[in-house]
Design a binder for these strands. Structure first.
Lengths: 109, 109
DNA sequence: TGCTTAATTAAGTCAATACTAAAATACAAA
DNA sequence: TTTGTATTTTAGTATTGACTTAATTAAGCA
């Protein structure tokens, strides 16, 4: 789950969004959309590759980049489980609080 | 959306998970669960605070930490939209491919 | 082969991050 | 008001991360 580190960088998140919308883009397509230099972008692409967030196909000299959906789905799952657990613990706290209140009311009678 | 940077650090992600399950924990509770020194953890808590991923309540000398659900929900949304767009662009590609195939078959007739 | 295009890697620099030890702050209770 | 407990801040250091320029690799074409 080094997905977070890879996605922490705004440029890399931007590249991922571009790829999600376009389906696929060559390295040059990607370079052209940023002020940053090709080597800078290429280094970001390397990080995304190593995090398995993208996959590459060779077409002649070109490298065509695609989103690799698996890590994104894992991330989606992680957050889903997280928010569920959070909700559960919140519900337990609420229930406990209600119990305390009714106990107090009994004592007051 | 500096949520990603805050969650990129494993210790911080760990703290968030602990808070999601427990509902709330004091700083000492959190320190006790890591090998890292109290100051190290305290600095991580500061990052989480500044990213608004947690909120704090004072109880005497203690600081009680809670998950602040909003940024996590935003994150969940971001990924949901991302995967939806990815699916859409994938569907469009599939459709295009099918069209190409039937065109080719017509020509072969 | 030699040239061009596409993309990456290497080397160096600067800023940001994470840790440690020591000091400081906050609150409560003796 | 001194002491103890809880927590944070500061200062210093080491590591990591992102960018730049220059060099290198890879593939296709004259």
């Amino acid at each position: 789950m080094d997905t977070f580190t890879a996605l922490a960088e705004p440029t890399r998140r931007n590249i991922m969004e571009m790829l999600a919308v376009s389906g696929n883009l060559s390295a040059t397509d990607i370079y052209s959309k940023f002020k940053a230099s090709p080597p800078a972008i290429s280094q970001h692409l390397k990080v995304l590759r190593e995090a398995k967030l993208v996959r590459v196909e060779k077409r002649a000299q070109k490298r065509i980049y695609f989103v690799n959906p698996e890590p994104m789905k894992e991330l989606e799952q992680w957050i889903k489980i997280f928010t569920e657990r959070m909700q559960d613990s919140h519900d337990r706290l609420e229930a406990l609080l209600q119990k305390q209140i009714s106990k107090t009311q009994e004592q007051e009678r």
